[in-house]
Simulated scan of single mutants.
Amino acid sequence: MPIIVDIDVMLARRKMPVGVLAEQIGITPANLAVLKNGRAKAVRFTTLAAICEVLDCQPGDLLRWEPDEVHQPAEPDVSARSAHGD
């Protein structure tokens, strides 16, 4: 998935254990682990806001986008040329 979750980075900067964050934002450590490890399909804005409040950060400090792969231009298909040499 091209959305990278950097909650662990912010936790390390704040020297805060995952369990403490989970307790302070009101979700289970297991659900926070799903989000933290990038396995979540969605996150509620209320949860994101609570994380930002506790960690004193912005959503962009926690989430970033990276493409799955670098797209290379396709090579021309030489077999598609006409018999007239076009």
Rank of each mutant, 00 (worst) to 15 (best):
50 A>L: 06
38 G>C: 07
33 A>L: 03
50 A>V: 04
18 V>G: 00
79 S>G: 06
75 E>M: 10
80 A>L: 08
54 V>W: 02
53 E>R: 14
48 L>P: 15
76 P>G: 15
5 V>K: 12
62 L>T: 05
26 G>N: 09
21 L>P: 00
4 I>F: 13
58 Q>P: 09
80 A>Q: 07
62 L>C: 11
9 V>N: 12
20 V>K: 07
35 L>Y: 02
60 G>Q: 09
12 A>S: 09
31 N>F: 09
77 D>N: 08
29 P>Q: 15
76 P>N: 15
8 D>T: 11
21 L>R: 01
83 A>T: 08
45 F>T: 13
22 A>Q: 04
86 D>E: 09
7 I>F: 05
28 T>L: 07
69 E>A: 06
26 G>V: 10
77 D>P: 05
66 E>S: 12
15 K>F: 01
27 I>N: 01
4 I>D: 08
80 A>V: 05
74 A>Q: 10
22 A>I: 06
5 V>H: 06
61 D>P: 05
9 V>D: 15
24 Q>L: 10
11 L>F: 03
33 A>F: 02
66 E>F: 13
85 G>W: 00
10 M>R: 06
48 L>C: 12
73 P>R: 14
34 V>W: 01
32 L>I: 04
30 A>Q: 12
12 A>C: 02
62 L>P: 02
51 I>R: 02
42 A>F: 12
26 G>Y: 07
29 P>K: 14
30 A>L: 08
62 L>H: 05
45 F>N: 15
66 E>L: 14
13 R>V: 01
18 V>W: 04
40 A>P: 00
30 A>R: 14
7 I>S: 04
44 R>N: 14
39 R>F: 03
76 P>R: 13
76 P>I: 14
65 W>A: 15
81 R>C: 12
24 Q>V: 01
46 T>V: 15
21 L>I: 00
50 A>N: 08
25 I>L: 02
66 E>T: 13
74 A>E: 05
80 A>H: 02
31 N>I: 09
7 I>L: 12
51 I>A: 06
6 D>T: 14
32 L>S: 02
46 T>F: 07
6 D>R: 15
47 T>N: 10
56 D>Q: 12
58 Q>H: 13
86 D>M: 09
8 D>S: 13
15 K>H: 11
44 R>A: 14
23 E>D: 08
34 V>M: 07
38 G>Y: 02
48 L>S: 13
57 C>E: 04
8 D>C: 07
4 I>N: 10
83 A>R: 13
3 I>E: 14
63 L>S: 08
23 E>M: 10
40 A>I: 05
6 D>M: 14
30 A>M: 11
52 C>N: 08
11 L>A: 09
44 R>L: 05
1 M>A: 15
51 I>Q: 02
50 A>Y: 04
76 P>F: 06
3 I>Y: 12
3 I>K: 10
39 R>N: 07
70 V>Y: 07
42 A>T: 13
19 G>N: 12
27 I>V: 15
76 P>K: 11
46 T>S: 13
56 D>Y: 00
31 N>V: 10
37 N>C: 10
31 N>D: 10
3 I>V: 14
